[in-house]
Design a protein around this nucleic acid. Sequence first.
DNA 1: TAAATACCTGACAAAGTTGTCTAAATAGCG
DNA 2: CGCTATTTAGACAACTTTGTCAGGTATTTA
Lengths: 340, 340
Amino acid sequence: MKVTINDVAHHAGVSIKTVSRVMNNEPSVRKDTVDKVQAAIAELQYQPNAAARNLASSRSFSIGYIYDNPNAYYVIDMQRGLLDACRKHGYELIIHPTNAKSPDIVQEVLELVRQSRLAGLVLTPPFSEMPHIASALETIGVPFVRIISGSTPSPKLSNCVLIDDFTAAFKITNHLLELGHTDIAFLCGDEEHSSSGERLAGYQAALAKRGIAANAKFIVPGSYSFESGVQGAKKLMELSKKPTAIFACNDEIAAGALFSARLMHIAIPQQLAIAGFENSPFSRQTWPPLTTAHQPNVTIAQQAAELLFRHTKPNASKTLSDKQPVFIPELLVRESTAIN
Amino acid sequence: MKVTINDVAHHAGVSIKTVSRVMNNEPSVRKDTVDKVQAAIAELQYQPNAAARNLASSRSFSIGYIYDNPNAYYVIDMQRGLLDACRKHGYELIIHPTNAKSPDIVQEVLELVRQSRLAGLVLTPPFSEMPHIASALETIGVPFVRIISGSTPSPKLSNCVLIDDFTAAFKITNHLLELGHTDIAFLCGDEEHSSSGERLAGYQAALAKRGIAANAKFIVPGSYSFESGVQGAKKLMELSKKPTAIFACNDEIAAGALFSARLMHIAIPQQLAIAGFENSPFSRQTWPPLTTAHQPNVTIAQQAAELLFRHTKPNASKTLSDKQPVFIPELLVRESTAIN
DNA sequence: TAAATACCTGACAAAGTTGTCTAAATAGCG
DNA sequence: CGCTATTTAGACAACTTTGTCAGGTATTTA
């Protein structure tokens, strides 16, 4: 029933320690010995005992994913990608939803690392953008990977997966401009998420390139929530000079704006074009469906985990290029911005 | 830095084993000894080493949650509830999204249990309704808790948390009847989910009680997806005799029906009332917001985990009543079924 | 007060793996 | 062919906790 390393060693005609060496990709094992051992492992369907491994080596085989994101679709996609990578490498994923605004969040994270003896962490916004969390993790020497907004890899961001929100936002704004809109408003996400700032910058850059003067009233602060979209659109449509298009910082805000427009009996897209960001499932389920930018979250998460494992596994092959992945979300045009 | 059981024992002036006994709620420890040990544990902030515990006791401190549900909000809520309970009891949660229709799903589940050495499992539909999974788990002796549709506790369902879909569906249908509707259609969810059948039965019972003859064309088979709602509503509105109200098996289907109605330029709720089920966040974000039944998923998940821990922990206090929890989702009236 | 009983505690081995250190095998070189 | 240098393999302790069982300490009863 239960196959131990002993059985494998016996079966392969080597010592326990040699099997252990093979398991951990340690050097100094002859090629044919490795083959012999791997054959035995396969034949006996040996599963190493994680607890014993943890105990003896005092390293663990789980990574943590800390998040505070009201967007369930985003979280599920991230989990999916992380789990894919974990399964591939024989790790386990410890999920930890929590409140980023909690005053002792750093303490909580350190506690989690200690308690669950994590080999590493994956951080998404807002955690990936909190310098005190990064420095605390560096202090205790736990590897971590951050998923953040950015377009240019740099040594300082060596443990980051970058998402080029700027370029994607530029493209969306450009799409609206090409439809003939010039009065384009922007509904911001949470200020503490740099993605919101990056997207705003992309929007502004696109306008500037066309020589359109910025209208401060068209930039509405808010948060990544449906409710924020509802309020933001309401505010915009009460202006004496109304925008003809709204670019919302994510799909949820866009859906809120859409909702708000319905309340005010504004026809979409005839009277007002609305674009979102993220391509979350409900961007397809609003009426009309939302133009948005597709963010491949599952793939992003996979890459993040792979990057983490490179730091985590001492003997992993370093052949994979260490260059930072940069993802540029793609424009997806749907009916909410059709030509009017 | 690292506090071991040894330090605690020393600090409390007892043997290592006694500390262990206290940790595990074992009997035969005098009250004041317990207090002494607990004081020492608290003072030193001792964190037991999970790996060593697993190894020595060959039991583990993680439970698994297996799911295959496209509804991200549902999954996130379940995770939240399970995690709450896990944190409280010092367990870890291993999430395992997978494909319920995979031919060797039983094998996969058993593999997961073995690999991650799970102390127990929580199953939601469709897994909770697959008899071969339950029997496989019983065979290998792993405790598990199922969240299923049902209204009457019974010894056979001793490890179940019940959700009374029948009664909730009855209430929703009744609400539509009270608004004056008599031509009420029903959009089914997946056939293999018993919740769909229960909700259908509740709908039928409510109609029958009013003496309204069932119209077979008003019952549309489908699945728990937005797309299914789109198709189902289309089919219904193409009938020569159209319904004036639609009760969809969940919010996602209802949102699809709403979408479909928009396509066909049908005013909601004036020409057609639509009700959903579940109170997922987007039932508030459609236009108009959906009448639905609120299912307290976080609480349900917590209870499920608590039930599981009662089977998992050998020395836990059995004082808690062992009666099965039954949840009846509550009617939530919103604009999609306002009086016309 | 002594004996019997119940209750409580501790010494030691055990769990399955890895780290360390030493011994053996092999290769290279003269 | 023999010696050294280097690579490879194995013996044994270590990691931290729990299970077993023997022994010790209260408590009760005669």
